[in-house]
């Protein structure tokens, strides 16, 4: 039984079907990526799973630990163990870094050990703890967004375009951090423009177009496609 199972998911905005008949699973300790052009429906899938869309717009079935969660309120879903790091990060810019982190711990009330371990992972955040989060650089904000999500002790992380707007060097660090999280046993659903890097990490990759999956790749196929489409040069 997979940790997260999405079956035949559909999302409608008015008369427009943004997502149709999408199914995939994500297990603990694996990365599943969704790639595809803008407007293909990737963000809608993550929002639907995280509970950020009205239930009236949704069809299909999403199960977490075999419990149906589709249409639940977002605060309930995060309490269950699924955290979304949304597109654009949505840091609370008027709150301090520390306050942002404290909010991340909302589902469990926040333990000191959690905070320490997160700050060890992202030391720059400890340094800027009292600063308004709006003053952080893009890369630092992305670290904060990730740290904030981790404090909820997620078992599945939904990452929406985490590398968007970041400098290439920072992107490398970010992907290493994502790989670390996978190795620690978190299931990750990753939506990325940097398709090549994302696919390198992924055990499964779904290519989207017009609201549905047009191609699915698994295991060694992913590496093969990466090689075929993007050339064989090794990545950092």
């Amino acid at each position: 039984m997979p940790l997260l199972e999405v079956r035949d998911l559909g999302v409608r905005y008015g008369s427009v079907a943004a997502v149709r008949g999408v199914s995939f699973t994500c297990d603990a300790g694996e990365i599943v990526t969704l790639v595809g052009p803008n407007g293909a429906g990737k963000t809608s899938i993550l929002n639907a799973v995280a509970g950020a869309l009205e239930s009236a717009r949704l069809t299909g079935d999403v199960r977490f630990d075999d419990v149906p969660i589709l249409g639940d309120a977002p605060e309930r879903i995060v309490h269950r163990g699924i955290s979304l790091v949304p597109e654009g990060r949505r840091i609370f810019t008027t709150l301090t870094v520390g306050e942002n982190l404290r909010l991340g711990a909302t589902p469990h009330g926040g333990s000191a050990e959690d905070m320490v371990s997160v700050l060890e992972r992202f030391p720059i955040l400890a340094e800027f703890r009292r600063r308004p989060a709006g003053l952080l650089s893009g890369g630092q904000q992305q670290q904060l967004a990730l740290a904030r999500a981790l404090l909820a002790r997620p078992r599945v992380l939904l990452l929406d375009e985490p590398s968007l707007g970041l400098a290439p060097q920072v992107v490398g660090d970010l992907f290493r951090a994502i790989a670390d999280l996978r190795d620690e046993g978190i299931g990750i659903v990753l939506v990325e423009q940097h398709a090549r890097r994302a696919m390198k990490l992924a055990s499964r990759c779904h290519v989207m177009g017009h609201g549905t999956f047009v191609q699915g790749l698994e295991g060694s196929d992913v590496a093969e496609v990466v090689g075929a489409y993007f050339g064989g040069d090794a990545l950092p």
């Binding site: 905005y13 427009v16 943004a18 803008n38 407007g39 293909a40 429906g41 990737k42 963000t43 809608s44 929002n47 950020a52 869309l53 009205e54 977002p74 597109e87 929406d160 939506v191």
Partner: peptide, 9 residues
């Protein structure tokens, strides 16, 4: 108006 930002992507 959806209280949560909705962005088709």
């Amino acid at each position: 108006g959806d209280p949560i930002s909705v962005k088709a992507g």
